[in-house]
Design a protein around this nucleic acid. Sequence first.
DNA 1: TTGCTTGCAAAGGGTTTGCATAGGA
DNA 2: TCCTATGCAAACCCTTTGCAAGCAA
Lengths: 145, 145
Amino acid sequence: MNPKLWQRNTQQRQVILEELRKLTSHPTAAKLCEIVRRRLPNISLGTVYRNLELLSQLGVIQKLEGGGEARFDGNAAQHAHIRCLACGCVADVLVNRPEKYPLPKCECGGFEVIGHRWEFFGLCNRCRQKRNIRKRYLERSHKNA
Amino acid sequence: MNPKLWQRNTQQRQVILEELRKLTSHPTAAKLCEIVRRRLPNISLGTVYRNLELLSQLGVIQKLEGGGEARFDGNAAQHAHIRCLACGCVADVLVNRPEKYPLPKCECGGFEVIGHRWEFFGLCNRCRQKRNIRKRYLERSHKNA
DNA sequence: TTGCTTGCAAAGGGTTTGCATAGGA
DNA sequence: TCCTATGCAAACCCTTTGCAAGCAA
């Protein structure tokens, strides 16, 4: 990244980026603020929002919107994500043979296409287990009834 | 769609769905409420939100999140969308040779994949023209300065 | 010294929710 | 009649913003 793209290289901005890049959990702004506060106890949520917005505008990080709260990814490289419909958590998706999936030729009714995003949605491991436990419980109560 | 999936087939619900299906503009909840009020002047925004949420849960319509306000599409069939980064408007995308782009095999770290969404972003015709007008204006002022 | 950035807190704005009433089955 | 859905308005919650003070360059 080019440090000249912003005016001041503040400690807050550095720590926010460093901590985000350590994570693979695609945290929300609030969660990242909590983590950054271990190093900078006085940082405010507003500052975290301002910097995450700036960094994502610069293309240094990715902002993942949709499905509730925004989440952030310290890896700016183009890659797909999957979001859990139950708890909202986000994980990276490794597409097999991605060379088979170039940006398709498309008709976009006068739009100038700048980018694209491929998002999956489903149920994460933990939520699927919860659902199965619930199902088994309901089946059992039904039999006993 | 199966009317039994809900409990009451109210006039509000019918009109919301009818009006949404007439549109290709992917309206926001507020915009659709405005349109529905031509036929049901007393309908409340809360009712519109409740029904749009219900219908999208049932898979009768699509809810398009990300990039600000949610927008809704009366066409529930799987298809790609493009959103204008400047004004937020949404249009359908016609992917050429979609058979070349089946759901890819992927590793999703324990997720159960339920669906996917392919979203493009860019600038719509109108915003692009505005931008060009602005650019020409700035160039001209620069020359004159 | 300059003026961008921060912390704080309040405002904003889309969406959800509680409650009494209306109305579909 | 029964119980879901509505209208209204307040509450919610994530995010943005105004302002005085702080601090990088």
